[in-house]
């Protein structure tokens, strides 16, 4: 347990320090894209260093949640259920961060915060909503065993909708409908020298952040379950 503690502490310190360094790198050190073609808002573009890493980390989080849900149904071990819960919570946080930064960037770059014809946006929103609904479902089932079983099933069913939404959007895009908003700026920006290392660092920081929060939340959930079990055990004889 002590080695686990030190891993947690290292992860927390590393991701916090990394976050501060990332802020400085992204806001001060990163090359400016001002005056570029297709970039109307070079300042908002700096959100890229937080937006994309947060999105990648949230996909990892939801992946962990899905795998844990499947493993729970196979093994019926509560640790896997707690793992799904913890990963879903952190995933919702990261996904919300992705959506928020995306909205701000979209507003200043496209002059339109949301674009329903963009598959990535809608897919991220569906994923976000599925796991918000997952957390709402958990809140509403008092019995721990039932809660674990039912919410794991929902996580699996919900995840199945995500690739379907992706394909639906690929078909949707062939529909004769104007496509004025093509986000080419990121592809252009990424080839600019000096951006790739900072972006890579950002991905690392967000993955560390996910790992730190996930482990932290997981331990908290385990502790909560132990307290609950103890209080039930002491109440029954009285």
């Amino acid at each position: 347990m002590t080695s686990g503690r030190s891993i947690d502490r290292t992860l927390l310190v590393a991701s916090t320090l990394g976050g501060v360094i990332l802020l400085w790198l992204a806001l001060v050190e990163s090359p400016s894209l001002a005056g570029r073609e297709n970039v109307t808002s070079p300042l908002a573009w700096k959100l890229f260093f937080f937006h994309v890493p947060a999105a990648l980390a949230s996909f990892i989080a939801f992946g962990v949640a899905l795998i844990s849900a499947v493993l729970y149904l196979r093994t019926r071990s509560t640790t896997w259920d707690h793992s799904t819960h913890a990963a879903a919570e952190v995933g919702v946080l990261l996904s919300g961060l992705t959506l928020a930064t995306g909205l701000i960037w979209g507003k200043s770059e496209w002059n339109d915060a949301w674009d329903w014809t963009n598959a990535k946006l809608v897919m991220t929103l569906v994923l976000f909503l599925v796991f918000v609904a997952y957390l709402a479902l958990r809140q509403n089932i008092p019995e721990p065993e039932k809660r674990a079983r039912i919410s794991s099933l929902y996580a699996i069913a919900g995840f199945a909708a995500v690739p379907l939404t992706w394909f639906a959007h690929r078909i949707w895009n062939t529909f004769p409908h104007p496509q004025p908003l093509e986000p080419q700026t990121t592809e252009q920006g990424i080839t600019t020298p000096g951006i790739m290392p900072i972006f890579g660092f950002g991905v690392l920081v967000f993955i560390l952040l996910f790992a730190a929060l996930y482990r932290w939340r997981l331990q908290l959930l385990e502790a909560e379950a132990r307290v609950e079990a103890l209080s039930v055990a002491t109440e029954v004889p009285a």
């Binding site: 569906v126 909503l129 609904a133 479902l137 919900g158 909708a161 379907l164 959007h169 949707w172």
Partner: peptide, 11 residues
């Protein structure tokens, strides 16, 4: 619970 899953179907 149902709405997010129905997005592709409705589309």
């Amino acid at each position: 619970l149902l709405m997010p899953l129905l997005v592709p179907l409705l589309m």
